[in-house]
């Protein structure tokens, strides 16, 4: 089998990364193993759970269901891109304040989906929040507090229009 390594260039959390990768390398493995950004979790590995959600060009995608070569030339944002200068992003603060996690495994994906929602819909209804996170599963079933956490972040971001952290 001839498999030529591909050169890719991906901007992750605002920093350009150049690498030679096997074409079959999944984006989530590129992030975790090549870039050591282990905040993005591998959950089901079957495109169901959304734990591995990152933003590509501002939109939530499942990083277990895209090859790293497909992200060539794109902008990727992971959970590590939320906080800035040691200060939590409002979406992170929301999960902290509203107890939006129990085991925490789904949390990075939930936060990225929540962050993307609030970029487009700063004042979402509860139904809009639930619809937005319908591709992110929480096996602890802590959805009530997850929704509260995203509401908390929405209020915080509306009251402080230029929050610390977050790029997209």
């Amino acid at each position: 089998m001839s498999e030529v390594a591909s050169r890719i260039s991906v901007a992750v959390n605002g920093t350009a990364h150049h690498a030679e990768v096997e074409p079959r390398l999944l984006l989530v493995h590129f992030l975790r193993e090549v870039l050591s950004l282990t905040g993005t979790h591998i959950g089901c590995d079957t495109t169901n759970c959304g734990a591995c959600t990152v933003l590509m060009d501002g939109r939530p995608v499942k990083s277990c269901t895209i090859f790293a070569v497909q992200a060539d030339g794109r902008e990727v944002m992971t959970v590590e891109g939320l906080a800035r200068d040691g200060q939590l992003h409002p979406i992170q603060e929301g999960f902290h304040e509203q107890h939006g996690l129990q085991c925490g495994f789904c949390t990075p994906g939930m936060m990225m989906t929540g962050y993307a929602l609030l970029q487009r819909t700063p004042n979402p209804s509860e139904a809009e929040i639930r619809w937005a996170i319908s591709g992110n599963l929480c096996r602890c079933t802590g959805y009530v507090n997850i929704v509260e956490a995203i509401k908390h972040a929405a209020e915080k971001m509306r009251s402080a229009p230029a929050p610390a952290g977050g790029r997209s």
Binding site: G50, M56, R59, P60, K62, T65, I66, T113, G135
Partner: peptide
Amino acid sequence: IGDLQVRNL
């Protein structure tokens, strides 16, 4: 179809 993430790709 699917969910938000799947619909984005």
